[in-house]
């Protein structure tokens, strides 16, 4: 479901994504299924639209195992990461901002093609759910 626009139509100002050579061609972590820490769903390792599945497609929970490069397994925290908010790239692709419940670190991850659309929508609408804050913001305009 995440849209990958052709390279010509992508916005030119954005920096290219950092080159990732860790574990990519060796087929190690990419094909490793895992069990979600939040909803205990058995998740297959391969995901449509991304080479690095890093969160549960059902409840969007993740695990704090990678540091900077996806798949490096360099973080010693191993805490549970909850989806905190939804961000959008300049080219329109959605990013989930994850928040580690144990060390407080934040990380942004692209959504995958089989992510739960209802969970994504709930996350994107979270700032608008409380009508008090959003209403006062609109009135102040």
């Amino acid at each position: 479901m995440p849209r990958r626009k052709p390279a010509s139509s992508r916005s030119g100002g954005r920096r290219e994504q950092r080159h990732k050579d860790v574990l990519h061609g060796q087929g190690q972590h990419r094909s490793q299924p895992f069990r979600c820490v939040g909803c205990r769903l058995d998740v297959p390792g391969s995901a449509p639209g991304t080479a690095h599945r890093n969160h549960c497609p059902n409840c969007l929970a993740s695990l704090h195992v990678d540091r900077r490069v996806p798949g490096d397994r360099a973080a010693s925290c191993r805490g549970r990461m909850e989806a905190l908010s939804m961000s959008v790239r300049p080219d329109g692709e959605w990013l989930i901002v994850h928040h580690c419940l144990s060390c407080g670190a934040l990380s942004a991850n692209r959504i995958a093609g089989d992510d739960n659309a209802l969970a994504l929508m709930r996350l994107a609408l979270r700032p608008l759910r409380d009508s008090k804050v959003a209403g006062s913001a609109l009135l102040a305009l």
Partner: peptide
Amino acid sequence: ISIAVLRNGDWMVIHRCVRCDTLTS
């Protein structure tokens, strides 16, 4: 880059550093 909502309803702004890509709230 985005707005996060705490459990008590307060809004937080998520910032991303353009140089080192660190995220803060």
